[in-house]
Design a protein around this nucleic acid. Structure first.
Length: 584
RNA sequence: GGCUCCUUAGCUCAACUGGAUAGAGCAGCCGACUUCUAAUCGGCAGGUUGAGGGUUCGAGUCCUUCAGGGGCCGCCA
């Protein structure tokens, strides 16, 4: 028996039972079973698994739900894995499994190790996840950090379920903002030569450019002083973006993020690739010269009808058509990005994911339209928008401003609170909700801090293994999986097993919805189960994991603890957080 | 004005894409360390899921109207 995801196993059993009922005439043929679910009931008193089958099939068959449920229960209870079936409420079928099935799960975990819970929903498919993609004009700050952690965790998650994942960073080095960067660096360069400079509107005043100005001075000496912009702009642009990207790369390394690819916007220019992409769209009749309507409700004073080159994105689900070329003949920001996504499509990915800041919300439909047009509807683009991170220090909101140079960088954050805390905390909210990050609370090593809570559960588990080993008990996974697990018979112990059983299911749900935060929440719950059992052992000595003089019992209980450690470790691994062996 | 996301306990948030009596943590109150690490646990209290309407056997979840908030809105990226 393939014991991997108990819930899908039982669902298969259920579907077989339903087919039998169709054969015997209890159900009419041609029914749609896709929405039949097998899931853990919210209230454990109801049972261990519940199915909605009877209620779902009542209408199409014209039968009463309870009638279907009764018949169905006869088929189900014939299976050795099912110990109790009862019909409840409006027609729920509540199942209890034999304790041996649950115990078998522990053996399964010990045998598979951290591969337990892997799924094949992504096998044979490739996905490109584009994240961070911060402009190379400054260091990464907390907002980027959230996107970086989210993207990386999602990459870990999708790769855990079988996808071939490419982690990619799009460098916006082709637009006007890198010119601004270059001019700002020029000012810092003059400053490094002892000149007094003023940072006007349209330049970056941040301190982080002082070093760049210095470095430039070291490289070119005084040769740029007094020269026209034409002379130095392109050179400084390259110099500065290279240096910024080096900085960004090392910030990402600090956070434990390793990209598979960096794609430069600038590399698209002068190669004809943008033109080719536009031509491709033009051949589909999606490029035309036209005049857009003014946006309604927006002050129309400075609005004048203007003829421009437009992409007919409305053909692919957008609200209005979008300009691809400026009046000076250069491309809009959107256009190289279309070409970039065309490149991704050409590279053959089955599925594209972009992780963007919430301020790019208005950009989603047009990009989806572009990908739809470029791939003939074959490649799906999923855009995940990251909401803001609200920082708190000493209980007070901490305002960040890039202009004023008062922003908390990724580096500062990681150096202050550590990689594990940073990464885990960034995943304690779903992506489209704002996240509060309190520097003080996060540094408290208490229950306020879910990272330590989960790591502590793992450390406690390791502690048990160490202790048992000291007492001469073989705690290798091989030995533990051979233990007689019938010693696990207390409800509190089985509660832990049942939580472990949810893992494969949860992984699939998280992957399907692209929501890695679910992993973090699950790990918290699993840790909670272990902590609860642990504390019960303080009172009920028979629940302690190491039972003096009872090798078999000890091994069975330790097998359970070890299973929890394996799943926590696997889960934290997906999120890029280290499990702790010990915490003191 | 349009598009989009959000609104759940005093606070911060979950809720397994439509399931049964909406759950955690913090804050508050009561309790558990001669015990495998108390960075832990148990208990009490806390709710008209922003408001109304609709679909459904069944709605925090889907549709719709409204209120409040964030973001975006023709050559900024």
């Amino acid at each position: 028996m393939k014991l991997m995801n108990l819930f899908t196993d039982i669902r298969i059993l259920l579907l077989e039972a339903l087919e039998k009922m169709v054969k015997s005439g209890d159900l009419c043929p041609g029914l749609d079973f896709t929405n039949v679910t097998v899931e853990p009931p919210r209230d454990p008193l109801h049972g261990e698994m519940a199915t909605n089958a009877a209620m779902l099939l009542a209408k199409p068959t014209g039968k009463k739900p309870r009638e279907i449920a009764e018949k169905l229960s006869l088929h189900l209870s014939a299976d050795a894995r099912i110990s109790v079936v009862d019909v409840a409420g409006p027609g729920f079928l509540n199942l209890r499994l034999s304790a041996d099935v649950w115990r078998g799960l522990v053996v399964d975990i010990l045998k598979k190790g951290e591969d337990f819970g892997r799924s094949s929903i992504g096998t044979g498919k490739s996905v490109n996840i584009e994240y961070v993609s911060a402009n190379p004009t400054g260091p990464l700050h907390v907002g980027h950090t959230r996107g970086a952690v989210f993207g990386d965790a999602l990459a870990g998650l999708l790769s855990f379920v079988g996808y071939k994942v490419t982690r990619e960073y799009y460098i916006n080095d082709g637009g006007a903002q890198v010119d601004v960067l270059a001019r700002s660096v020029y000012l810092r360069y003059l400053e490094a030569h002892g000149q007094k400079v003023a940072f006007e509107e349209g330049t970056y005043p941040g301190d982080y450019l002082i070093l760049v100005g210095q470095a430039l001075k070291d490289q070119v000496g005084a040769s740029f002083i007094g020269k026209e912009e034409d002379f130095w702009l392109a050179k400084i642009r390259k110099f500065a973006t290279d240096m910024m990207m080096d900085h960004i790369r090392s910030d990402l390394t600090l956070l434990g993020v390793e990209m598979d690819a960096f794609f430069s916007e600038k590399s698209l220019f002068g190669t004809g690739r943008i033109e080719q992409t536009i031509l491709k769209l033009r051949e589909q009749g999606l490029i035309y010269e036209g005049i857009l309507d003014p946006p309604k409700g927006k002050k129309p004073e400075d609005w004048e009808p203007r003829k421009q080159t437009l992409f007919k994105s409305t053909e692919h689900g957008d609200d209005v058509d979008r300009p691809v070329m400026k009046s000076d003949g250069s491309w809009t920001y959107f256009t190289p990005d279309i070409a970039y996504h065309d490149d991704k499509v050409k590279r053959g990915f089955d599925f594209l994911i972009d992780i963007l800041g919430a301020d790019h919300g208005g950009y989603v439909k047009r990009m989806k339209a572009a990908v739809s047009a470029l791939s003939g509807g074959k490649v799906q683009l999923e855009v995940k928008l990251m909401q803001l991170v609200k920082l708190y220090k000493n209980g007070e909101p901490f305002k960040m401003s890039k202009r004023a140079g008062t922003f908390v960088t990724l580096r500062e954050m990681v150096e202050q609170v550590g990689v594990d805390v940073t990464r885990f905390m960034m995943l304690t909210r779903k992506n489209d909700a704002t996240l509060e990050f309190d520097f003080d609370k996060v540094l408290e090593q208490s229950r306020e801090n879910p990272v330590y809570y989960v790591q502590y559960a793992h450390a406690r588990g390791c502690s048990v293994l160490r202790r048992a080993s000291e007492k001469g008990i073989d705690v290798s996974d091989g030995a533990l999986s051979a233990a007689d697990l019938r010693h696990l018979n207390h409800g509190s112990e089985l509660a832990v097993v049942k939580k472990l059983a949810e893992w494969p299911r949860l992984v699939e749900i998280s992957a399907r919805t692209n929501e890695p935060h679910r992993i973090a929440f699950y790990l918290y719950e699993l840790a909670s189960e272990l902590h609860a059992l642990w504390n019960k052992g303080n009172v009920v000595t028979s629940l302690r994991f190491v039972q003096e003089g009872h090798l078999g019992t000890s091994q069975a209980k330790i097998a359970l603890v070890r299973s929890v450690c394996i799943v926590i470790s696997a889960g934290l691994g997906i999120l890029g957080v280290r499990p702790a062996e010990e915490m003191r």
